[in-house]
Design a binder for these strands. Structure first.
Lengths: 160, 160
DNA sequence: TCTGAAACACAACATGA
DNA sequence: TCATGTTGTGTTTCAGA
């Protein structure tokens, strides 16, 4: 099912993606509509899964999650990269992202742990237990300059 | 400044990170406190930047952002990896993440575009304009199995 | 740092256009 | 799909412990 979004929807998405706790009343003021109409649109966007979730972004350092790493994983299935392996990776709480990628490796995984010892433990315990993993290649992040998951949502041309 | 979080704070963070729009009243019920006390804690967590932001997570496909890629970037400064280059990368709206990484390459960048043509355009226009970039190595994501930025926040032992 | 109370604002729903 | 109006609930502030 294709979702059709008009300019008002896009305006709402752009406002809400950077400030999920904006009140419906404020949202209504920003787009010059009645609150009830805006609420209806937001509910519809949630229902259609255009809005997937509302997250509070927490400073990892404040909660003792100081290490960030990307791990490239090669699996036995080679080209096929079974969803089973992918799901096993996804089930690890420290794993924030699992991507099936093009190229020699099968998966790219983003993990966050307290420190290098935590990463070691994760690799020894959680990863080792997943069958079909052939090899891993870990890239440690020294410093994160930007980490923002807001999308660039294009408004349609009003003259188009 | 070190931030001290007690178990109530951690409970609040765990609740709010998965549901940023939870009402303060519900939050208060969950932790068995008066709404005013919870509000005070949340405000403090925001002020201390433990909570950095409230985001709505938007389905990229619904807003025509179908391509996800990771780009490894080698820069002329080699080992130093100037913050200037990092900031130039961070300034590109399609760039969601910029990490300074250990190893041969300098930066790992996560980008989201409409399609491969959009990625091509980004590399030709935005990246080409940044001096000091020596080479890039792009990894295309075929399928994202998991993408969740919630942290694993550990509660302290009540018996400790 | 918490509770409790009180004023105000908002969310949510129904109705009708 | 939107505006208006009503009701119940939530937010926010303040005093006091």
């Amino acid at each position: 099912m294709e979702v059709i979004l008009d300019d008002t929807d896009i305006k709402i998405l752009n406002l809400i993606q950077g400030n999920a706790r904006i009140s419906n009343a404020d949202l209504a003021r920003e787009v010059n509509m009645a609150p009830s109409a805006v609420l209806e649109r937001v509910k519809k966007l949630e229902q259609k899964k255009v809005i997937k979730q509302y997250n509070a972004v927490i400073n990892p350092v404040a909660v003792q999650q100081k290490l960030l790493a990307f791990i490239f994983i090669k699996s036995k299935e080679g080209f096929t990269c079974s969803t089973e392996t992918a799901n096993s990776l996804a089930a690890i709480p420290e794993v924030q992202e699992v991507h099936h990628i093009a190229g020699e490796d099968c998966f790219l995984v983003k993990v966050r742990t307290a420190d290098s010892a935590g990463l070691m433990e994760l690799m020894r315990n959680s990863l080792r237990k997943i069958p079909n993993i052939l090899s891993t290649k870990t890239t440690i992040v020294l410093e994160t300059v930007k980490e923002d998951h807001q999308l660039v949502i294009q408004q349609k041309n009003k003259t188009g």
